[in-house]
């Protein structure tokens, strides 16, 4: 309960910070949206339609109130262009789904790959296999996503001509209907996020392999796979839950750059586009939404770890 309250408190504080940063500092959204050459009457009209003629506190209040009701408000740019459907919720519903597909596929591939490669590296610790897994994983983890992504494009599009350099998804269709557009974005996210998990599983396996009960099992004649699955992996698994959760949390940020590299029509591309257009209202609502997801995953991970590792449960109570 205390953690949930802390999460909500953080989110509230973040909403103040994000709102303050995007609203108080320079000029205002109407001016930023219309550009410097806007005529005063046009500016005034847009300000009124966006509610910018109210006081800052009033605007923050109505924004927050809207958020609590699930209303993300209107995009300043869409209102300025007299778009028929200016609401942010309408604009981001498809990108959110697309991003969820990308994140889900990445996670589904990430978990078995992490366990497999981590266990493999741990069993053969400090041997050739270990180095062949750990070193590239660490190198890719150190690089920015856009560098990895661009190098992948050079190899798979430039040299091999096998995969498209941009992940365009026709409006109204699901990215799943054209799976090849997902390959490179997923690969980039996997390369960027595998190392942390592999390292964790690897050291877990190394630790468990030195335990007495594993030695006893070995002396009792248990070998190979039975020993590995029954004794080693099961005990090395619990600490890995947190690292998987951290990786999913990483995806919330990582997806923004990766989607932009491939022009994948997800929430990241939408956000970067909004920043480019200085669409202040769209930026603040999208950022708060992503922050909420981020904090929620953190919370769920904490609860899941406590649930899976009985030792922690008794320590806490």
């Amino acid at each position: 309960m205390r953690r949930i309250a802390a999460g909500l408190g953080t989110l509230l504080a973040l909403s103040v910070l994000v709102f303050a940063a995007t609203n108080v500092l320079p000029g205002n959204a109407a001016e930023l949206t219309l550009g410097r050459n806007a005529t005063p009457p046009a500016l005034h009209k847009l300000e009124h339609r966006l509610g910018f003629d109210h006081s800052i506190a009033h605007r923050y209040g109505s924004w927050l109130g809207g958020l609590l009701h699930g209303d993300l408000g209107n995009s300043a740019v869409a209102v300025a262009q007299n778009a028929p459907e200016p609401s942010i919720a309408h604009a981001i519903s498809t990108p959110l789904k697309n991003s969820a597909v990308l994140a889900l596929i990445t996670t589904l591939l990430l978990i078995p790959l992490t366990l497999l490669l981590g266990a493999f590296a741990g069993i053969h610790a400090r041997k050739k296999v270990d180095h062949m897994i750990s070193t590239p994983a660490l190198v890719f983890a150190a690089l920015p996503e856009f560098v990895t992504a661009t190098l992948l494009i050079v190899v798979f599009f430039g040299w091999l001509g096998a995969l498209p350099p941009v992940s365009l998804v026709a409006p109204g269709t699901s990215p799943l209907s054209n799976v090849e557009v997902l390959v490179l974005p997923v690969l980039t996210l996997l390369l960027a996020s595998l190392a942390a998990g592999i390292r964790q599983v690897r050291s877990g396996v190394i630790e468990v392999l030195q335990e007495d009960y594993v030695h006893v099992a070995q002396l009792n004649g248990l070998r190979g796979r039975t020993l590995l699955w029954g004794y080693v992996l099961r005990n090395a698994l619990a600490p890995s839950v947190q690292i998987v959760a951290q990786t999913i949390q990483y995806l919330v940020g990582g997806i923004i750059v990766v989607e932009s590299v491939f022009s994948y029509p997800g929430i990241g591309t939408y956000l970067v586009q909004a920043v480019t257009e200085r669409d202040v209202t769209a930026v603040q609502s999208t950022v708060i939404l992503l922050a909420a997801v981020y904090i929620l995953i953190n919370l769920l991970a904490d609860l899941l770890v406590v649930f899976l590792v009985p030792k922690l449960r008794t320590e806490l109570s």
């Binding site: 973040l14 919330v252 940020g253 923004i256 920043v275 930026v283 603040q284 950022v287 922050a291 981020y294």
Partner: peptide, 12 residues
């Protein structure tokens, strides 16, 4: 509690 790139985007 905010992903790094989001902080950068808000400031930009």
């Amino acid at each position: 509690s905010l992903p790094a790139i989001l902080v950068m985007l808000v400031l930009v």
